[in-house]
């Protein structure tokens, strides 16, 4: 079943200063799965996500994305095939909602028409209205911001979507709505999702598999 694995993490060692965070850690992520990385704070779950994305470089060990060993040379290329949703508000404040959404599409040099069409298609998926597009992030609510963040992460049809506690800063009602939304998106897109969370309920609700750290 080797070809069904999209992310392989092999024998990773990582520490902050003298503190060991990950020790000889290995894990596989299946294509199309929704893996929830579950753990206490300090357990290294966000670190693992950043290592997969190449934002952190492990002291030893390999990350293999779709049979391609992650290295400085192919880092940007690989990241462009991943979506990334961060905790809290990470929208670019000087760009409009629309410009935020097409950020990755622009990095990939897609045409204006393609971008417009793509966003128009995605808007109903996250339940956002068109009149929001020309607003700036500070003009919309926290829940709306996270929805925009999700579109930003999936608009360029990435192979993998990484999410780092995307709902932690939201009130419970908004969180519940967004959980349903993300689950729905995963089912529709059939993309691999990796989500870091500290909530067992959230992991059980969303994950097709759970990685406990």
């Amino acid at each position: 079943m080797e070809n069904n694995i999209i992310i392989e993490v092999q024998n990773i060692n990582f520490s902050f200063g003298s503190q060991k965070i990950l020790e000889d850690f290995s894990a596989n992520f299946e294509k199309g799965s929704f893996t929830c990385i579950l753990g206490e704070s300090g357990s290294g779950k966000s670190t693992l996500l950043r290592i997969i994305n190449g934002l952190l470089i492990p002291e030893s060990g390999l990350v293999i994305i779709d049979n391609d060993i992650l290295s400085p040379e192919n880092l940007i290329q690989n990241r462009l095939q991943m979506g990334y949703v961060l905790q809290g508000n990470s929208l670019f404040p000087h760009l409009t909602v629309y410009q935020n959404m097409i950020y990755c599409l622009q990095l990939l040099k897609k045409s204006d028409d393609y971008c417009k069409e793509k966003i128009a298609k995605l808007l109903p998926l996250v339940g956002l209205k068109k009149d929001l597009l020309q607003k700036f992030p500070h003009e919309i609510s926290g829940g709306q911001k996270q929805r925009v963040g999700i579109i930003r992460a999936i608009a360029h049809d990435p192979k993998i979507v990484l999410m780092d506690e995307p709902f932690s800063a939201l009130d419970s009602e908004t969180r519940d709505k967004l959980q349903i939304l993300v689950k729905d998106i995963h089912q529709k897109l059939k993309t691999t999702f990796v989500m870091v969370t500290h909530s067992k309920a959230e992991a059980r609700n969303l994950g097709t598999s759970i990685l406990q750290l």
Binding site: N53, I76, L86, F92, L107
Partner: peptide, 13 residues
């Protein structure tokens, strides 16, 4: 730093 991380994480050079 979070915005820089977001931009890097999304694949900016």
């Amino acid at each position: 730093a979070q915005l820089v991380e977001a931009a890097e994480g999304l694949g900016s050079t």
